[in-house]
Design a protein around this nucleic acid. Structure first.
Lengths: 155, 155
DNA sequence: TGCACATCTGCAGAACTCTTCATACGTCCA
DNA sequence: TGGACGTATGAAGAGTTCTGCAGATGTGCA
């Protein structure tokens, strides 16, 4: 894949190849565009949160560590699927494990991801509060966000 | 898929089906777990940001509207791929279009997503600043985040 | 030691995503 | 009006991701 520097060079040097309507703004945007690697890394993180099952796991871990079978129960996933998902999250250092005998306790171990998840939950509930008609009947939970009622972690 | 209410009921009524190590915490987590629909909606948004090309599009749009061909130039995507990606973002109301003749100018139209993208970019650059060894040679851009140098939108 | 248990992992199929190609649509201009 | 242009879209194929299954690993206990 092309780096942003390549694109910019192409645009400036050879206008025939790449049509540009506002070359100055394109150059400006390119100048502050993060490197390809940074964009990929960032989208990787968002991608981890882009799966409802994984997101549920992370929401469950907001308040402290849980073992695999409890996480499976909370998310409604099989223990195998849970383990697979946790492996992915572990590989990206989003969660970490503490082993105690044959049990494995996972915890959310990435401050940035914690913030993203926490804010997302808060935002969802806030949106519901503004637009109650969007709520769903099976909704069975809190009205306040995690961000609003911080309790100390159990770990 | 089971709703969280189902899971909780199963766990409480029938411990044989779902193994639980810490039923109280599981119940507590379930009680504040957002509804299935909210989790899916939230992960959808993260999923949109989970693709490097789309993320690049959104970063490019942080400072104001751009037409399709300029967006294609900035991201290095084909115009067709750009259009497809924009359609997806449009369907989720993350971007909106302004048509002017045969041109289509897109803009970032979701405050929550804007915040997520802006913070992600800032976080990436901050991380680079702390751990410069993680930077990559082809890095060719700003040292300051969008969040730090807000200029008015051009639209 | 032998068995139950909690978790992990490789694999294969199903499901989904993304890109490209070809083409269609609406606008502008000669 | 015809052709160039900017954009949009459908279909198809390649690639990726996710899940369940089966079996492996490592621990605890009798």
């Amino acid at each position: 894949m092309k780096s942003s520097a390549d694109v910019q060079a192409t645009a400036v040097i050879d206008d025939c190849t790449v049509r540009l309507v506002d070359p100055e703004r394109v150059a400006a945007v390119n100048a502050r565009m993060p490197s390809e690697q940074d964009v990929v890394d960032t989208s990787d993180v968002f991608g981890l949160l882009g799966d409802p099952r994984r997101l549920k796991l992370l929401v469950a871990l907001l308040d402290g560590e849980l073992c695999v079978c409890d996480l499976a129960a909370v998310t409604g996933m099989s223990e195998s699927a849970t383990s697979h998902a946790l492996r992915l999250l572990r590989a990206h250092r989003v969660v970490s494990v503490r082993r105690d005998g044959r049990m494995a306790y996972y915890r959310l171990d990435d401050a940035h991801v914690r913030m993203l998840v926490d804010r997302a939950v808060a935002h969802t509930e806030h949106t519901d509060a503004i637009h109650p008609e969007r709520s769903h009947p099976e909704r069975s939970h809190s009205e306040r966000s995690h961000a609003e009622r911080r309790h100390p972690e159990r770990n």
